[in-house]
């Protein structure tokens, strides 16, 4: 170990931790138990199957996820679109000849 690092540790007054350990030690802040240690894994690129099942998932998994969320998302936008559409048409009607007559106002 270089002198500079020793000096740095002395200044900081604690064991030097890497970013993973630092985050783990801070985890009490987020209200979860402090893990004893953080495991990091790696797999040889030759053993990885990066695109395993991607084609199948692209259709069926995407559809499954879409189906489970669509009813949360779409109805508010349908209502919003209908409301704006009604407002625009109502406004156009009120600015038309029959609209003004219906409202009982004088035609400008």
């Amino acid at each position: 170990m270089k002198d500079r690092d020793k000096k740095w540790r002395k200044i900081r007054g604690r064991k030097q931790e890497n970013e993973f350990e630092r985050i783990a030690n801070l985890s009490n802040l987020s209200g979860c138990p402090t893990p004893q240690r953080v495991a990091t894994y790696s797999l040889s690129p030759n053993r990885q199957r990066v695109l395993a099942g991607a084609g199948h998932a692209a259709i069926f998994n995407v559809f499954r996820r879409f189906r489970h969320q669509v009813l949360y998302v779409v109805p508010p936008f349908v209502v919003a679109y209908a409301a704006m559409n009604w407002a625009i048409e109502r406004n156009e009607f009120l600015n038309s000849k029959p609209g003004r007559l219906l409202e009982g106002g004088e035609e400008e």
Binding site: Y72, P75, P76, F77, V79, A80, A83, M84, R90, N91
Partner: peptide
Amino acid sequence: KIAFFIFVANFLVLMQIGAKHVETPFIEV
């Protein structure tokens, strides 16, 4: 989750209302 998307849709309604003339029924909406 429903409340969140209602909020988002409502934000988009406000965005359109901001570009309209101050006339009925845009005022009320």
